[in-house]
């Protein structure tokens, strides 16, 4: 999908002069051109209109509603009485001052950063490995996509089976090599890392495919020229691949971050946030508050914190990558 986004960007850039040129050519020739253009614009908007309405209802409205709900005492009784008194910042205060908030923040940060870092390193190594063509490379590359295409709940169910403490295959393997069994999902000190393992497994295909696409764009002449100068292996990666790949890396990291911080399905299905809240993140707790405790106002406040954190970090990453690109050249 990201390749789409990127090709889209270049397309928009290309399109601007073309549109201007067409308008200039049309004007002197056709006296009615203004009306014709207006008519065509109108039809174009008519084609787009349903999408605008849909986006307004299914993205715009919930975001705005979430914002207003976060300042209201919005619970199940609201559905019967229709009353949701304004409470100012009370919901935010109760979220941030709750005993759990520090724990949630640490869990969310550890889960997101560690998942992203490990996924990125493995995805990069795989992309570099597949960048050379060899027998079956195409087939193997498409097989890697499978975990990405599976519904998250399925992946989570399978990993839950494999991580079962008593009868799971992971412990079966570990104890046969003499390590003994690991309480993957039942020990508060281990559970978060088990979830990260599963999340990395799910995230690798996406990362690898985008990075691979970026690698394929780098002209081979660069490497040939560099090997003439004696730069091979690590040096060619450091001085050619990495600088040229940086825009793609930025996209992978930003999208990876946004997609990871909101992970809900995997955590709910593997541990349900437990044991003892050790795998509870902003996303799972926001779900818990709204749809289990039916405190929609408080849940909205926490999910707004989630959206602010994720957009803020994404913007920060974007700025850092822009600046380093400027410095690079």
């Amino acid at each position: 999908m990201t390749t789409l986004l990127m090709s889209d960007k270049t397309a928009t850039v290309r399109r601007a002069p073309a549109a201007g040129g067409a308008a200039r050519v049309n004007r002197p020739r056709d006296t009615n051109s203004h009306r014709v253009i207006r008519r065509r614009q109108l039809f174009a908007w008519l084609f787009i209109a349903p999408a605008i309405v849909y986006v307004a209802i299914f993205f715009g409205y919930p975001i705005v509603n979430n914002l207003t709900m976060s300042f209201q005492d919005f619970t199940t009784t609201t559905f019967y009485t229709g009353e949701a008194p304004w409470v100012g910042f009370d919901n935010y205060v109760s979220v941030v001052s709750s005993a759990l908030f520090a724990r949630l923040s640490v869990n969310t940060a550890v889960f997101t950063i560690l998942s992203l870092a490990v996924t990125f390193v493995i995805g990069m190594l795989l992309a570099l490995f597949f960048n050379a063509h060899f027998k079956l490379s195409g087939l193997l590359r498409s097989l890697i996509l499978l975990p990405w295409l599976l519904p998250l709940i399925i992946s989570a169910a399978v990993w839950r089976r494999m991580m079962d403490e008593g009868s799971g295959i992971l412990n079966q393997i570990l104890s046969s090599v003499g390590i003994g069994s690991v309480p993957w999902l039942t020990n508060p000190d281990v559970a978060l890392f088990s979830i990260i393992i599963v999340n990395v497994w799910i995230g690798i295909p996406f990362t690898m495919v985008i990075l691979y696409g970026g690698l394929q764009e780098i002209p081979t002449e660069y490497y040939e020229a560099a090997s003439l100068d004696g730069a091979t292996g690590w040096n060619s990666f450091r001085y050619i691949t990495w600088p040229l790949l940086r825009p793609v890396v930025a996209v992978v990291l930003i999208l990876g971050f946004v997609y990871t911080i909101r992970v809900l399905d995997i955590i709910l299905a593997l541990t349900g946030g437990g044991p003892a809240n050790s795998t509870q993140t902003y996303a799972t707790q926001a779900y818990q508050l709204s749809f289990v405790d039916f405190k929609f106002g408080v849940g909205a406040a926490l999910s707004n914190i989630l959206i602010v954190v994720s957009l803020l970090v994404a913007a920060l990453q974007l700025r850092t990558s822009r600046r380093s690109n400027d410095l690079a050249g």
């Binding site: 919930p62 975001i63 509603n65 709900m69 911080i261 779900y287 849940g299």
Partner: peptide, 11 residues
């Protein structure tokens, strides 16, 4: 995040 949409859409 999906939870934002779900939360805002439910009412």
């Amino acid at each position: 995040p999906g939870i934002v949409i779900a939360n805002g859409l439910f009412p």
